[in-house]
Design a protein around this nucleic acid. Structure first.
Lengths: 259, 259
DNA sequence: ATTTTTGTTACTATTATAGTAATAAAAATC
DNA sequence: GATTTTTATTACTATAATAGTAACAAAAAT
């Protein structure tokens, strides 16, 4: 083999890295900023940014020179979102459970140590429960813990070492050992619990979405309840069956789609 | 100047072309298919696809070798969609008008000769009115006609020559000369009309979203009504003011954002 | 008005890619 | 089940593209 990197395009990788710098928190960036954040030298950054601008994926504000997402990026975003077969496959299953049981449901996919929000349905009693699309706080969420419980030992250690834990509510666990213990408990129990650790007023239970063939975690689902109306005990008595049934159904789809 | 193309990355362009091949109608594609559709030679296609797979933007179904969008593409899609400042800027304005007047509203941006759906709110009486994200049928829609009316003469001719017109309903205009006449009328009138030409049962009126500084059309808005409940005459008497007011407000935002 | 930062262009050595071709692995066909 | 056809992957190298340095231009900041 001449070179194992021969069939990998560094240029494309760099381009994608640049495009990923733009999100809701960072709608605008300068050339130098992009260059510094990505570590790509100024000229190459200029070339790639210029390419994006010419193709309409980025645009320059006429006043200053700052760069923003363009129409083509928006269109590509649309298509990548709606063209994602997993999303289309999971949607009807969650809709069905939502309509049948009238509970808020959330789902996400693993991407390294991040959770990517896949699809959710919310009951009106969970007002203003708007989550970010990409979530790092696996340790503080039912969906996160369900995933951590099915990480390999080395994946889990890697995560716990690298993560910066914040006390999001008074209930948040921020001690590595306590989280480890909780993770083990989660694995034994078969589902995870978030008792107002991520946001006050919200109790959630979560379960992993597995690829049965590959024996890996692909993501997770959670059922979310307002703590005013539901106690954890009540939830555990009445909704775990629904949760695990839903997780199993989604896992089958995921497995068949090879996620 | 050494070479004017020096600051344009063909590799990145090719990569983006490939990513754009995946959408709801085409969730799965083979390597050769990609190579043929894009005109990129097989080895280069392989290199680019391989890059996407390694980075998680594409994945291979384990059974056959067909390629599908991956988690990273879904995440990027999310971010490009929600990180698009125009979308965030327009959303509250449309929401406000929607809640105030209880009418279905649609908006889109121009991208060449295509319309890209930006944001819409629908009343329950417009059930099953699900539109594609990217629309070519400018000639048959209120939003499309509003845009055509503000194309330059050469842009319009270019569009009319290249477009393939389909009779979507018995009302659809498919004769180039008739469409030209209608476009001129639209320009004089200040708003466009779609009298069940795109879909039976739906009447729409549309107006352009302009960039006042650049003096270009950036997109358009439409108000959509069920023909069972509203006549065109009634709509024209009661809603044109609202339409033009909304279009003006959005145009100002668009202008200030330099779209 | 001067300094500093940021964006754009020029210039090559170096590297990556295109393109051909050969091989391997699946699918399709017989 | 063997054979043909299609598709995917690897090898090889001329050619073209990119990286990186540096110089310059244009804004911002001071």
């Amino acid at each position: 083999m001449a070179n194992k990197d021969q069939y990998f395009s560094k240029t494309l990788e760099k381009g994608l890295t640049i495009l990923n710098l733009f999100d809701r928190e960072h709608p605008s960036r300068s050339l130098i900023e992009i260059s510094k954040l990505t570590g790509i030298n100024k000229t190459s950054t200029y070339r790639l940014v210029n390419t994006f601008v010419h193709l309409g994926y980025l645009r320059k504000s006429s006043d200053n020179k700052s760069l923003r997402l363009g129409t083509r990026a928006f269109a590509l975003g649309h298509e990548c979102f709606h063209g994602f077969d997993i999303y289309q496959g999971i949607k009807p299953v969650i809709d069905k459970t939502f309509l049948e049981h009238k509970i808020s449901i959330d789902s996400a996919l693993v991407d390294g140590n991040r959770l990517i929000s896949l699809y959710r349905r919310e009951m009106p009693n969970l007002v203003h429960y708007h989550l970010p699309l990409v979530m790092d706080e696996l340790y503080a969420r039912a969906m996160g813990k369900a995933i951590l419980a099915h990480f390999t030992e080395s994946e889990l250690s890697g995560y716990l070492e690298s993560v910066h834990m914040e006390e999001l509510t008074p209930n948040t666990l921020t001690d590595v050992e306590k989280i480890r213990k909780e993770i083990i408990e989660t694995r034994n129990r078969g589902y995870s619990v978030n008792n107002e650790e991520y946001m006050l007023g919200i109790i959630s239970v979560g379960a992993p979405i597995m690829n049965f063939q590959k024996r890996t975690v692909a993501g997770s689902v959670s059922l979310d309840f307002p703590s005013k109306e539901y106690s954890l005990g009540y939830i555990e008595q009445n909704f775990i069956g629904i949760l695990l049934g839903l997780a199993g159904e989604i896992s089958e789809i995921i497995t068949s789609m090879g996620m």
